[in-house]
Design a binder for these strands. Structure first.
Lengths: 142, 142
DNA sequence: ATAATAAAGGATACATTTGTCCTTAATTAT
DNA sequence: ATAATTAAGGACAAATGTATCCTTTATTAT
């Protein structure tokens, strides 16, 4: 469905939401170990999310990444968007540029319902909700 | 959702199903123009499908690609499978290798329903059904 | 048989994605 | 102030996906 980069972005964000606070920031090594992702690559991804202010970071001792409470209320769609993968949720399954009610591809009638459900899912679930779903340490790791 | 290769594979197969017969085979140029795909790349893809005998081909004058009637009855999932993209339909949204009822990712409960619908869609729709859905020449082209 | 035609196959080029490393900049503890 | 720490940023490497071209092989029409 999504690229590796987006998968890592989602896992990292949920992990940070669950395990960090202003007084307990998380380093990139800790994060990448926790979500089982390549460290340097994950660092790049967090840079993207930080620049868009979806997550926060501070350098230096006791620095690291964390989430503001307001950010935790954001729908997870925001992350997907920030990673430039929103099109995955609304483009034509067959890859047509113009696929609509007016000019539908042969799968349009059926697939549009699934697209709607996908969008609804990612629009309604917040980062916090998903963080709350994390049961074990493995829930983001394997 | 799917790779370009798989999108072309699906469009090409549906187009061939609709427009060819044993006595009217379709050349690669005609096909790639009809579905608006890069000709040589599409040729490679049809080679894959031909080798798996999902579509048929003959070289030489009046040669080209066509579909046996029995192949038209195959679920479109067969094409996805042949292109090595079946995992797209059943893997974890967050990219976890092990994501199940027993050890779920934070999105599992919700996403599994969508996965089921996706699978059901691609398992139930046959190539022929989709060919019948093609209304205009643009239905596979833009 | 021969020439023409069309797919098959191999080699290669280009683009994008994924992943790593090293230096710089910012922050903090001392 | 200084040293230690941690993210940011730039450069690069590797892997994969996309696309093109050229030669070979199979088939058919003549």
């Amino acid at each position: 469905m999504f690229s590796k980069a987006t998968e890592y972005a989602l896992r990292a964000t949920i992990f940070i939401a669950k395990n960090s606070s202003l007084s307990k920031k998380l380093g990139i090594e800790e994060i990448s170990v926790a979500i089982n992702s390549p460290q340097y690559f994950t660092a790049k991804i967090l840079q993207i999310l930080t620049k868009k202010e979806l997550i926060k970071s501070t350098p230096g001792p006791n620095g690291g990444f964390f989430l503001l409470n307001e950010s935790k209320q954001l729908p997870i769609r925001t992350i997907i968007d920030a990673m430039g993968e929103s099109t995955t949720l609304d483009k034509c399954v067959l890859g047509l540029k113009e696929c609509s009610e007016k000019s539908p591809c042969p799968m349009h009638a059926q697939y549009k319902n699934i697209k709607r459900e996908l969008q609804e899912l990612f629009d309604s679930k917040t980062i916090e909700m998903l963080a709350a779903e994390v049961k074990s340490v493995k829930s983001l790791r394997y």
